[in-house]
Design a protein around this nucleic acid. Structure first.
Length: 113
DNA sequence: CGCAGTCTAGCAC
DNA sequence: GTGCTAGACTGCG
């Protein structure tokens, strides 16, 4: 289960108003099993709609595919889209508006002057 | 659009 | 316990 937990930990780091892709989460976790990431999200025990906003909640609704499309969601895509909009993320036709702009990236290279 | 690669969970033997 | 299938994916042809 270490894998799933790692994925959740990374997912929890996604700031409000930002989204992330399964690919980024997988790479951040040091793997290429993008599908496994989605699987972990689906089975995550601390869903936002389940635990509410807390330190242990996993904002799986902020995770979309590499195209910015909303894929699946345990509570339904409608709920997912609503949550994203609620956080300031635009959703149009099950797709993130300004996807590139709201996509969150982990401390990448950290500009070294 | 279709196939292959990668990982976990669930069910069958 | 081992083996096979399916799944919230991604990349290439």
């Amino acid at each position: 289960m270490a894998f799933n937990e790692k994925i959740w930990e990374l997912c929890k780091k996604i700031p409000r108003g930002r989204v992330m892709t399964y690919k980024l989460l997988a790479e951040a976790a040091g793997t290429k099993a993008y599908r496994a990431v989605g699987n972990a999200m689906n089975k995550n025990p601390n869903g936002l709609l389940v635990c509410g906003y807390g330190k242990d909640m996993v904002p799986c609704h902020r995770v979309v595919d590499s195209s910015g499309h909303l894929r699946g969601f345990a509570h339904g895509l409608n709920a997912k889209a609503r949550l994203l909009r609620m956080e300031g993320i635009g959703i149009k036709e099950d797709r993130v508006v300004n996807f590139k702009m709201v996509t969150y990236r982990f401390t990448r290279k950290l500009r070294k002057k």
